Amino acid sequence: MDAHNATFYPREATILAAACACIFSVVGVVGNLITTVALLMHPKLRGHVTTMFVLSLCVSDLLFCSINLPLTANRFIRQQWGLGEKLCQMFAFVFYGNEAVSLLSMVAITINRYTLIAYYDMYTQIYTSTKIWIQLLLIWVVSFGLMVPPLLGVWGQLGFDPKTFSCTILPKNSKSPKKYLFVFGFALPCLVIIVSYSCIYWRVRESKRKLEGRRCVCGKLSGQTAKEKEEDSRLTTLMLTIFLCFLACFLPLMIMNVADDGITYPWLHIIASILAWASSVINPLIYAATNRQYRAAYGNLLKFCKNNPVARRTTWGSRTVGQSSNSPQYGEKEKRNHHKEPARL
């Protein structure tokens, strides 16, 4: 390694990065694997539209945690790559491809939620089984397709960077797509997520105001205003949580790669990378564990592990999982069930 071109990371920083990569790898593999298995083992949830995109996100994060993070820990511990040029190129290809899949899957989830609220009458036409699989295929093809030009050396190249002892996107003939991929790959998904959730919030808020107006006319508003304000507050908190977690994980890395390409501040690059890795761990918590139906799926998975085969089949068929409002058939099934079961408080 050329001493004049190398970036000397403090040993404490590389040890911290390696430790975080190991921890995130274990926690991420366990969390994403449990989420994937829990959703796949329950047909009622498996058939929901949003669940399909959540599974795409989980699989992407699972691949990242099981392939990229262990190799990342290895290079930070050794402060070199040492695993060959071809594996280095494939590491960068899978690393950036998986990051893109994760981002686009989150975009698909937000668009799906907005469509469910704003265009419910057209929801079943937009999200048919065939169209869902087409969207999932496009997410993966586009994400990894963006990495084909540098992989083939057409626009930039994938290889070893001695300055950071990392496998990444390198310039070729003084041309590199790295900054363009970072800027547009982050800015556009972030913009779509912000716009989608903002539209969801204002749509729900507008509907609640109309409902409040009708209750005022009928003189039945008593006791409802405080509850509606509380629901608005919870919705706002949820939106802020999603925005802050998304931005906290990816924005520092985007800023450092664009603003400090020469690695003037090694510690900041290490911290930004650790935050980006953390996204593969917290995604199951944000998009799955916070949802009541998904928590029920986790509970039923535990029952499956403990019960005998007969009890397992009974657990699968129980109403503890229920129907998610993300399912196009949700409204019709609820109406049919309403005549079969007494109302529950």
Rank of each mutant, 00 (worst) to 15 (best):
E85M: 11
K86Q: 06
Q89R: 13
M90S: 04
M90T: 04
F93Y: 11
V94T: 10
F95N: 13
F95V: 07
F95W: 08
G97V: 01
G97K: 09
N98W: 12
N98L: 15
N98S: 15
E99Q: 15
E99V: 13
S102Q: 15
S102T: 15
L103D: 06
L104N: 13
L104F: 15
L104Y: 14
S105V: 14
S105F: 12
V107C: 12
A108V: 06
A108L: 08
T110L: 03
T110D: 01
I111P: 03
I111H: 10
I111D: 12
I111M: 15
N112Q: 11
R113N: 11
L116T: 09
L116W: 07
L116S: 13
L116Y: 09
I117H: 03
A118G: 06
A118K: 13
Y119M: 12
M122G: 09
Y123F: 10
Y123W: 02
I126S: 04
I126F: 10
Y127L: 03
T130D: 09
K131Y: 14
I132M: 13
W133M: 03
W133D: 00
W133R: 06
I134M: 09
Q135H: 12
L136F: 09
L136R: 12
L137P: 00
L138S: 13
L138Q: 10
L138T: 11
I139S: 05
I139K: 05
W140V: 15
W140G: 09
W140E: 13
V142Y: 07
V142S: 04
S143E: 03
S143G: 05
F144G: 07
F144Q: 06
F144R: 08
L146Q: 09
L146I: 11
M147L: 13
V148E: 03
V148W: 00
P149G: 06
P149H: 04
P150D: 02
P150E: 02
L151E: 03
L151G: 12
L152W: 12
G153F: 02
G153M: 04
V154G: 03
V154K: 07
V154D: 03
G156D: 01
G156W: 00
G156T: 01
L158M: 09
L158W: 01
G159F: 02
F165P: 05
F165L: 09
F165H: 14
S166M: 05
C167H: 06
C167R: 07
I169V: 13
P171E: 01
P171K: 00
P171V: 00
P171S: 06
P171N: 01
N173F: 08
K175E: 10
K175Q: 11
S176V: 01
P177H: 01
P177D: 02
P177Y: 00
K178I: 06
K179R: 13
Y180M: 08
